[in-house]
Write a protein that binds this DNA or RNA. Structure first.
Lengths: 251, 251
DNA sequence: GTTTATCGTTCACTATATGTGAACATCGTT
DNA sequence: AACGATGTTCACATATAGTGAACGATAAAC
């Protein structure tokens, strides 16, 4: 059962290389990063270019991501119903608290914000939508991870953690205890774990089958957040519980 | 010189099938659409799924586009500088005219709106951003096509035209004359060619090398548009000329 | 409740497409 | 002018992609 097509896999990896690199990349550079010959990379690029997934800058011969990806990405956004479903809720949350309200989903081994309403305060924190990050990294993703299967949790925690700040958790056991505490409380409040001076409050959303599906979080500067911490934790939890019920989840 | 990788090409075509189809597609359906065996399609899907380009709905086993495409599409949007460059201009245009103002680019054989400011009138027309359409289809794309190379124009006009309305141009010769008129005037005003009761005004933007790079258009209900037609054509042309100069284009 | 049709998945096999590595052309720098 | 780097092309041998049939599961039809 060898069902992975190597050339297709290579082309996917190639495209994803652009996510954490310069806007434009050259053949030799890609060849080194992918560890395949220049000729092969060139064929990949020609093929992807003919499909609009890649485009070449005629001036410097370098390659960048093509507009077909933008077209497909827009289609993905149009597809997912629950972002539209959750939008009124995070809007209401943001209006009420004046802080950044986010809707976060799990996809494979990663998390991703797929909707957000930004804070209107002059001093504010912001996140990047449609960008993957590890499940252990933020309160928004940890409240999802906490309700995943034990195997899933073990798999995620078996990889080394990126230390975003001096306060980031790096010990798997400590993380496990934190996840247990999330299951006990039903939400999480965390500070300085990914960004110094930033506090997040997050709670999970469950679907009709009782499986965790997404989360909602409130993020902002710690000094402002601490003024209403308990009240806002309540508000976030009530919001997610309402959404879970909308999804058909029974307490 | 066989430099097209068939499996990569197939995977790209497969992904693009979702653009004009249901949200979810099955293996057999895709097999018929792609004209390759079910087993091969399955391998393609497994590979794409392992990279996050496709995801399978566990309930009905059907496949849909994955979030990695959203991630890549967002990166494409972040990359292109000129949309941000043009944004103030179309914003100003929309504020002044109260109609839909669009920024349109050419990519390969297609056109695409990559930015727009919508009209605030209760009765208004709208377009879909980040969606390909043929170069001959709208005034926004025709003013680009008009300044393309003769070979490019011939190639585009050699394919049969889609008849969006009873008034749509279907004769290549008639289209050529229209393009000639665009080059003569420097802009185009068109009505009912793609949508009945809708009028568009468009003018091209040139880069430093004098090559056509994009266009700006103003679109709205014909009855409202006709009240200020000449004045607004002037305004659009002035906007594009200003942007062309910003790009380094010399008259 | 049984049959039928259709679906997604798996498998062994062969033709074929793929990746290699070297040679080439082109550019900017030294 | 020589160099080093680039992107591009090519012929070839090997690994691989696509076939077509069989499987099990599911849902519709009788």
């Amino acid at each position: 059962m060898r069902s992975i097509l190597t050339s297709v896999q290579k082309s996917c990896t190639l495209l994803k290389l652009f996510l954490n690199a310069e806007k434009e990349l050259g053949v030799s550079d890609l060849s080194r990063k992918l560890q395949i010959s220049k000729g092969a990379v060139h064929k990949l690029l020609i093929t992807l270019e003919s499909e609009g997934f890649i485009k070449q800058n005629p001036n410097n011969k370098l390659y960048s991501l093509g507009y077909t990806l933008l077209e497909l990405g827009t289609k993905v956004k149009d597809n997912h119903d629950w972002a539209e479903f959750a939008k009124p809720s995070i809007q209401k949350l943001a209006d009420y608290t004046k802080e950044l309200a986010c809707f976060c989903i799990i996809d494979g081994q990663d998390a991703m914000y797929i909707d957000k309403i930004e804070s209107q305060y002059p001093i504010r924190f912001n996140v990047e939508a449609y960008r993957r990050f590890p499940l252990y990294a933020t309160s928004a993703s940890r409240v999802i991870l906490a309700y995943c299967s034990p195997e899933m949790i073990d798999q995620v925690l078996s990889q080394p953690f990126k230390q975003y700040t001096p306060y980031s958790i790096t010990d798997p056991e400590e993380m496990k205890q934190r996840l247990a505490k999330i299951r006990q409380l039903g939400y999480e409040i965390s500070s300085n774990l990914r960004n110094i001076g930033v506090t997040g409050i997050a709670a999970p959303i469950f679907d009709a089958e009782g499986k965790v599906a997404a989360s909602i979080s409130l993020i902002g500067p710690t000094d402002r957040m601490t003024q209403n911490l308990d009240h806002w934790a309540d508000t976030v939890v009530q919001t997610t519980q309402k959404l879970s019920r909308h999804f058909g989840y029974k307490l």
